[in-house]
Nucleic acid binder design. Structure first.
Lengths: 199, 199
DNA sequence: TATTGACAATATATGCGTATATGGTCAATT
DNA sequence: AATTGACCATATACGCATATATTGTCAATA
């Protein structure tokens, strides 16, 4: 049954896209299955061929967004074109992880709740995504340390500790950012100085 | 009239102390003037000799806490005993500004709302305090730059830009901190590396 | 003169019935 | 096999009335 279809199912994806616009515009509560179905151009009943219920749509949407952000972040950390140094790669990962989401949050009324770690429906997904991102960062820091790109020992930091400070510090830079450009500027400044301190 | 008494008025202060315990324990809405009066050992009516109304108590409480934190932060930035370098002084300021408040937030159910910048009652005070703290940081950074303790130009940063990144980055370190000790550790790591990058 | 009990106006909580909206299911249809 | 209209149970929105709680004021008091 479609329920088990692979992620690339175009119809299932169309539903998620419609759900995203509705949820981010009106929030979970104020969005009805009818709204999602209409936006996706299908009947309400057929939504249940692809998802178990409304909450599952929300969770799958949240999971899908986080997966995309994580994949982009991982790609940034692995990037080789232009031979970016560790600071550039981490900056790219932070942009992938934070700047993208920030855009949704600042430009849609209820975009925030999709990424809210206190949200009953997807809080666990947000936390898991956050933990995985930190692990990616830690791994990249460890590799850079081995490659002598940075000197963790000299700074008295373990790779996980450095990753934690980078992730949380970068997260704080979102506060009060009027637009994505501002956030990117802050991220660049933060990363530049921080990695200069890890030489 | 007492209404205009100076801040040191012990009775007025006792009311603020009681209000703090009640507000941080039950929140503004669920705290009644009766609760505050009882906790302060006075009649409800006499509260109105010291404050115009319930909202004013809340605002004065918020303002008082922020003033204290700012005063402590400023003292840390001016500290001379032990000849602390700029990194140590900033670390002290961040602890004064964030770690103190964090303790209240983590240990009381509704402590957060007193520092919530989205709070209708005190949001303006929180933002103002935040701006003043950033100004203090910027001033200290500027002074350290002139004294050649740090090299802002080399990092491509203005003093306000550096202060912004420090304040917001440090603020992010609060996330998910189970206790104040954890936050302090993160702050120390952050400040150490960041200022090493400003050499 | 600082403090307070008592008072009036307002705000909040609760219950109830009804109308509407929504979620989830399933047999019928294409 | 995918899709859907129709169905039912539940949830939410609304109006309204009543009871209780709370706020802010003021004249009386100690």
């Amino acid at each position: 049954m479609s329920y088990m279809n692979r992620v690339e199912d175009p119809k299932r994806n169309a539903i998620l896209v419609s759900a995203f616009t509705q949820f981010s515009g009106y929030g979970f509560r104020r969005t009805s299955m009818e709204d999602i179905a209409t936006a996706a151009g299908v009947s309400r009943a057929s939504l249940y061929s692809y998802f178990g219920n409304k909450e599952e749509i929300f969770r799958c949407l949240s999971a899908s967004i986080h997966e995309q952000a994580l994949a982009d972040a991982e790609a940034a950390l692995r990037a080789t074109s232009g031979k970016p140094d560790i600071a550039r790669r981490v900056e790219g990962a932070l942009v992938a992880r934070f700047a993208r989401l920030q855009e949704v949050v600042t430009q849609s009324p209820h975009g925030r709740e999709i990424y809210d770690e206190d949200n009953r429906l997807c809080g666990d997904l947000v936390l898991e995504s956050s933990a995985r991102f930190r692990a990616l960062l830690a791994s990249a820091m460890r590799a850079a340390d081995r490659a002598r790109e940075i000197n963790l020992k000299g700074a008295g930091l373990s790779a996980p500790a450095a990753a934690e400070v980078i992730q949380l510090g970068a997260s704080g830079l979102k506060q009060g950012a009027p637009d994505v450009a501002t956030l990117k500027t802050r991220l660049r400044r933060f990363v530049r100085v921080f990695f200069a301190g890890l030489r």
